[in-house]
Design a protein around this nucleic acid. Structure first.
Lengths: 347, 347
DNA sequence: CCTTCTACTGATAACGATTTCAGCCCATGC
DNA sequence: GCATGGGCTGAAATCGTTATCAGTAGAAGG
């Protein structure tokens, strides 16, 4: 008798006095098995401490039970929450998570996509490093479904879950305008990604509908990291006629903006309003109020997994796009966060 | 001819006019192959766009190329950074990351450990939910090496990478004492995990060596989450003789403490000093200074992977323990972070 | 009673790589 | 010239599961 825990399906079959095929049927609940046999097999499984060899199973079916998740960086709290949401949903369905950080690097991303294809994962959820350049082709070829989150993939269209970026940017900007600001700067991630492009459009729309000029000198675009936000803010503060409010295009940029304001001294910071994206746990601790468009991140992850599961079950409709509404939240010192009075995003 | 990208090792062999065994030898760089043949095989591989079937490979070798990572929660910034460090090191060595959140739940963790064993991962890095209860036995039985990070596993001893918790807690407490505080409270995660137990010990040690009484009413212990930190802080503020300084036992507790202080009003917050663990990117934005013991998280992840890789390569020494020193940092408004003047941790 | 189902079961053939073993060829040493 | 050995190669077994196909037994229907 094999050592406990090392038994194969044949050992179980032998002990139960049936064939391996029957044990497989019991295991997968697929195909008819008499109650009597089913019980004998179960007993044999328990007695031997048998655990199916998942690698052999994957080998036979040529499909693994992993969901590949390709994001920019787990250290970005937005993606962290996304990972968590996806993980919970995935494990609930019997899948586990293969994690990759692309670092916004199209080359690195390409390698990971190829890797996922080689690994025959059951599905992939990704946030493309570039709308134009990212290609999911290797996954398509292998018949592996893909869902894009937070950003579109134009080169290889797939199901996509997005924030309503136009609404969030427009409403945040409207909020700043309603507070009396006229010179508003925008610091945005690259327009080569969906959020950068759409949030710029929302900003411009709000400015124009209020009849305010859009000063190109007040629009900064770059890699959406903290360092860029900081550097852009320093540049803006150095202008002869600096803006009185900032629209920050993502969470890291917001952090950079706040730090730059900090470095310039508290007095100045109080004169400048900041609007950003994503609610973060420390925002209620800030010395000055800030308004943010909170993304329904958990829901985004769940919806992405739902779309993926549908595809994995054979759904073959043309690619769909899910657009979720943001929720505007003002974080104020000595006050619990409250939904913004105006500019609540509509669907 | 098979479709491009779907070729098997036999297709390659056929096209190169050699046997599958030879192709395998070329692929793995294992065993002698003449230069001539090697080139022909390479050409065939390129021509067919052949990619080895990783599942088949894992099946044959009964070992996958995944590193299992079992942590409490990716949304905790400490683990987020750890994930990132482990991931970078793992991918550099040709391994990829399987991520699980145990949520400090021993049962959930048990299931994940079993899953990793079933999956025949190459190695596991974990942060045990409990020193006493967590068991890595299923992994041992399967010959899978394990490294524990941030916490010890007493039931099944393994290589372990820890912060020098005694030093960090002692030095933080010393710092508070040096600033003139006499009534200092400690809010700590459960003593059933390593960090909780050792940080309590460090706190007590510093108090005793300063000849200060350790008031049991000022020591709060519980689940190391934000909600607990907040609730404990509210309790302390409600005492007739509240403490003048707080020693917070982990990063989430620190956040909870700060929020509770916030809710009680800024004036009070200014009278109370806070010392915590982990440096977080937003700390420089705080209205009041805070001192923290920064953990060398990236190094912890790297060291863990190094230990794991050594085991995977057959190292069979008795379990080792790596203890890394913290770095004390004061975050002050309008000032870049600076190393604390006193209490710098020693090795 | 014979046919036709249906329910159940077993034998067997994959899946695609690695590994073992044996064999061949040629150079070297005696 | 013959044995020895090393470099190179191929045939075949193997890993553990699932899927296909055929076969058996008993029930149902005519």
């Amino acid at each position: 008798m094999p050592a406990r825990g090392k038994a194969t399906i044949r050992d179980v079959a032998c002990r139960a006095g049936v064939s391996a095929a029957t044990v497989s049927r019991v295991l997968s609940n697929h195909g008819p098995v008499s109650e009597d046999v089913r019980m004998r097999v179960q007993q044999a499984i328990n007695a031997l401490g048998y655990r199916p060899n998942r690698i052999a199973r994957s080998f036979r079916t040529q499909r693994s039970n992993f969901i590949g998740l390709i994001i920019s960086d787990v250290e970005n709290p937005f993606y962290t929450s996304l990972v968590r949401a996806v993980e919970d949903t995935a494990y609930a369905q019997g899948y586990s998570l293969l994690l990759c950080n692309s670092d916004e690097d199209v080359e690195k991303e390409r390698a990971y996509i190829q890797f996922m294809a080689d690994e025959r994962v059951a599905g992939v959820i990704g946030s493309p490093a570039s709308e134009q350049e990212t290609s999911f082709a290797p996954l398509f070829d292998a018949g592996i479904p893909v869902v894009s989150v937070d950003r579109r993939s134009l080169r290889t269209p797939v199901d996509t879950v997005l924030l309503d970026n136009l609404a969030s940017a427009r409403d945040l900007t409207r909020y700043l305008i309603a507070r009396g600001h006229r010179r508003i700067a925008a610091i945005l991630p690259n327009v080569s990604i969906t959020s950068g492009r759409e949030r710029l459009a929302g900003f411009v729309q709000a400015m124009q509908e209020a009849g305010l000029p859009v000063d190109p000198a007040l629009i900064c675009e770059g890699k959406g990291f903290e360092a860029f936000g900081m550097q852009a803010m320093h540049y803006l503060l150095g202008l002869s006629d600096p803006p009185t409010a900032i629209f920050a295009g993502n969470n890291l940029i917001t952090l950079g903006v706040l730090k730059a304001l900090q470095e310039h001294g508290l007095r100045m910071a109080e004169d400048i309003d900041v609007a950003g994206h994503d609610e973060m746990p420390w925002m209620s601790l800030l010395a000055k109020p800030i308004i943010v468009a909170a993304q329904p991140i958990r829901e985004m992850g769940q919806r992405a997994m739902d779309l993926l599961l549908a595809r994995m079950n054979g759904d073959a409709q043309p690619p769909r796009e899910v657009k979720l509404p943001p929720r505007l939240v003002v974080h104020q010192l000595n006050a619990t966060a409250k939904a913004a009075a105006c500019g609540e995003a509509r669907r």
